[in-house]
Simulated scan of single mutants.
Amino acid sequence: MTSRGSPVGAPERFLTMLAAERGAAANTLAAYRRDLDAAADELGDLVMADGDALASLGEAWSAVSPATLARRCSALRQFYGFLVDEGLREDDPSPALPRARARRPLPRVLSRDEVERFLTQAEEEAAGDRPESVRLLALLELLYGSGLRASELVSLPVTAVPRDAPFLHVTGKGGQQRMVPVSTRARAVLSRWLAVRKGTSRHLFPSRGESGHLTRVRLFQLLRELAARAGLDPERVSPHVLRHAFATHLLEGGADLRVLQTLLGHADIATTQIYTHVESARLVALVNARHPLARRG
């Protein structure tokens, strides 16, 4: 291993670079920090660690899940690449890192019938225009109807709600801006929510004290409580499951993968391709029906 000493604060400099050059969000930076801290707990000085030390992490982290192992090793590869780029090391020991042998799990998805039961329950509860019930229906419509992340949804400002154009202005990961279509029914529910919403908070879904917004934890709780009332297994329901359902059901309906990437705010289409598992049967039928060789058979 060759190194130019052990510069103080190299992990902090790495995190600063992620924030400044890649626009990494606060949650992303916190995750990178935890992964680097986990490695430092095992190896001590990360800057001085050699290939043998990194290889030992496979045994040290044998109890963690394949996904956690893959994430930690990814953080370390980027960290050592940064050290080399900055001239803080002459070599990159990251090829010695252990590799997780696991396929990325397919996302949990609710069926269309289950989503319909979910929406029906929310609509029935909101029939009397009780503010809490109308708010929950609006949250559900935007999660399933627009595919928003939980963090994007709860932090929406009132100014994001469209007046004439059927789009929401959303700030996603890394501060990236995108426009998300809002269905006619979702716009109608949003209008109902704005009519019964109290206070002057700048947030579309304010917290009780109005100093902040509804938290992701509370959103999670509200959805699980609604799922139980709708006769669904609460353990199968979360904001991200509804985002998965949005993507999967759009693909089933014939949506283009690139369009879906834009709607979901994915930086890399490889992330969006996880949803193509729903397309296998439809694609086989398409080839059998349309390909010239099918007609020869």
Rank of each mutant, 00 (worst) to 15 (best):
G199K: 02
H240P: 07
D256W: 08
S133C: 09
L168P: 07
L264D: 01
Q176M: 11
W193Y: 05
N288F: 04
L106H: 04
R243H: 01
L54Q: 05
V182F: 03
S207I: 08
L110I: 11
D50M: 01
A30L: 10
R197V: 09
R208D: 05
T2P: 12
L168R: 09
V8H: 15
R258D: 01
F246N: 00
A75Q: 10
V47F: 01
G265Y: 10
K198T: 12
T16Y: 03
A70E: 02
R185V: 06
L156H: 03
A227F: 01
D35R: 00
G9F: 02
P239W: 07
L168C: 02
L286Q: 12
A150G: 07
E152P: 05
F246T: 08
A40H: 05
G209F: 05
L83Y: 03
V109K: 05
E252S: 09
G44V: 09
L140A: 01
P206E: 00
F79E: 11
A255I: 11
H213G: 03
H291Y: 05
R99N: 11
A55W: 08
A70K: 09
R130L: 14
Y275D: 11
N27E: 12
R178Y: 04
A102R: 15
Q121T: 13
E124H: 14
R77M: 11
G212V: 00
L140E: 02
R178M: 06
M48F: 02
A31F: 00
